[in-house]
Amino acid sequence: MARTFQGRTVVPGRAQAPALVSHEGFNTLASYQMALMFGDKKVKCGDQNNRDIYKQPMFGVALCLPQTIGSTTGGMVFYTAGAMGKLPACMCFSKPIDSLAAAGVILADVWTDSHMPVVDSLGDEFLEYVRTGMTVTVSEDGTVTVE
């Protein structure tokens, strides 16, 4: 059954992709470091502390997460992934976006050719409902449909 959640648009746009769900804070540097260093085309998550998505491909997915955590290099990591064309299809935050992720997705949007819609404040219920592999559709107005 499809369910719709209303969030706030951080980077506008539309996308549809399979969900990859991290219930824990997403450590941006730890998740991307090895994939960027070794040119991994699937961009598999390298954060061994994240049991939900460790070793799961992050390219082309709807990354569903509460917030990002970790090093303040996080923003430049998203920017780099954007410049290399290795960002997820979209990002859906259950909580208000944190300053490091916001910086990163805005840097990628303004300075690279990538386009990754980002929605935040979808609520805890969103993260409880969505499962890895479900189809996530993001609309311009911040509506996110999960089915």
């Binding site: 303040t72 923003g75 300053s99």
Partner: peptide, 25 residues
């Protein structure tokens, strides 16, 4: 500033004002 430990020290011990920014920002 962005270095998280330096931001924390500047805000808390020195009373300066800085958000937890990202590198590049």
């Amino acid at each position: 500033w962005a270095e998280s430990s330096a931001v924390s020290y500047a805000n808390s011990v020195l009373g300066a004002r800085c958000n937890r920014n990202s590198g590049i920002i």
